[in-house]
Nucleic acid binder design. Structure first.
Length: 107
DNA sequence: TAGTCATCGATTCGAA
DNA sequence: TTCGAATCGATGACTA
């Protein structure tokens, strides 16, 4: 296996429907769009993210490559700082981070 | 080398 | 009218 994601893809099993439903909930709750999420977390375009979130294929129907975005989503969901990171990424894309106390900017 | 899969990106749709 | 989400044809990477 060439990447860490491939290792996880072969060893674990993910309920893609449950996973995507939880991701959508979190994103909507914080008003974060598919384009932002795709760029910052998955490395995919908005259209791709839309297809993954609205019609996720069951785990056993996916190739190793196809499982990678879902693994990234799973890792992102378990990251306690996921929202903070995303919002900071968002603020850097457009204007600028307005908080002088921002912990991401300090480092 | 033909068929499948994941992704792209332009376009369309829908809500505010 | 603008922004985020959904659709869908085109395309490159794989694979049998």
């Amino acid at each position: 296996p060439s990447s860490m994601l491939e290792v996880i893809a072969m060893t674990s099993e993910i309920d893609t429907l449950d996973l995507t439903s939880r991701v959508k909930d979190v994103l909507q709750f914080h008003n974060l769009g598919q384009k932002l999420f795709g760029e910052a977390v998955l490395g995919l375009s908005q259209g791709s993210v839309s297809e993954l979130l609205s019609k996720p294929k069951p785990w056993h129907m996916l190739s190793i490559k196809g499982r990678e975005p879902f693994i990234k989503m799973h890792l992102w969901l378990s990251d306690p700082q996921n929202i903070d990171r995303l919002k900071h990424y968002q603020s850097q894309i457009k204007g600028r981070c307005d908080s002088s106390q921002c912990k991401w900017c300090l480092s």
